[in-house]
Design a protein around this nucleic acid. Structure first.
Lengths: 143, 143
DNA sequence: GTGCCAGTTCAAGTTAACTTGAGGTCAAGC
DNA sequence: GCTTGACCTCAAGTTAACTTGAACTGGCAC
């Protein structure tokens, strides 16, 4: 049984986030001392799972859905594969973009618009429109 | 001189977005026919540049700053290099995550928590916390 | 027993990048 | 000349993931 301050310290997450996560059903407190929440230490593992899911690009809602009602992780392999494939596509796009940026940074052309590589990037940028992708990247402190 | 409907059609962006972009200083209209905005056709290239920047992970504000007051792109090579390096780090993280997801999707362990690879991912997820990264991914329709 | 301070609740604010809605305008077609 | 519908403005709403603020509470040290 650890209190919220302790959990915050050990997880590196602010207490406000822990309350928010509890509200969202991502973690559970097991009681109170006064008003103060008490958690089981294994919530730390749970928080790692949440950080992992967020890192992989899942939304908090998706992460929440990955826990069975009993609290055990219930991970859908097809969903993981799908996310892996999505990451793979993202990686491809980012690599092209990175290479293009590097080129542009070193390109001798006085005006970028005259550089063929730059113009090719422009074309690529104009392709592949897919509306509304969340895709926030951030990790979680060591837990 | 094309009107906003034409620009919307050719850029694939809704008129509301074009107005929004004008408001943000990303594009400029050169006049009106009645209330209706009129644009020079080269705004299309400008929109491609915006799409490119967004693809590379710049915010709209950063993209706006890339245009000199005279309207010509004024691109900071150091900034491009920095963004390339940032993309490179992101790519590394995503690759690790993708590989981990693939493994987890195929892992025979009955409970993911018993899989060493999965546990390693958990550890990694717990590292590398960097607050507030926007990182929206989306492209722009052919322009 | 009492005051402190870290906790609590709940609503509202934040950021990015847009979208939506209400109410208004006007060029063009009939 | 009148209707119409696409465009206009401006404010407010949307989403994700939190943070912040105001008002309150209660275990613990003294």
């Amino acid at each position: 049984m650890i209190d919220i301050a302790e959990l915050a310290r050990r997880s590196g997450l602010p207490a406000s986030t822990l309350r928010f996560y509890e509200d969202k059903g991502l973690i559970e407190s097991v009681g109170r001392r006064g008003l103060r929440r008490l958690f089981e230490p294994d919530v730390l593992e749970r928080l790692s799972l949440v950080a992992l899911g967020r890192n992989a690009g899942f939304t908090l809602e998706e992460v929440a859905a990955m826990f069975a009602p009993d609290g055990k992780p219930r991970i859908d392999r097809a969903q993981l594969s799908a996310k892996a494939a999505e990451l793979d596509r993202t990686i491809g796009r980012l690599r092209a973009m990175r290479d293009g940026l590097r080129h542009a940074a070193n390109c001798p052309a006085p005006d970028h618009m005259e550089c063929p590589t730059f113009r090719r990037m422009l074309k690529v940028a104009g392709t592949n429109r897919s509306r509304r992708r969340p895709k926030r990247m951030g990790a979680g402190k060591s837990v």
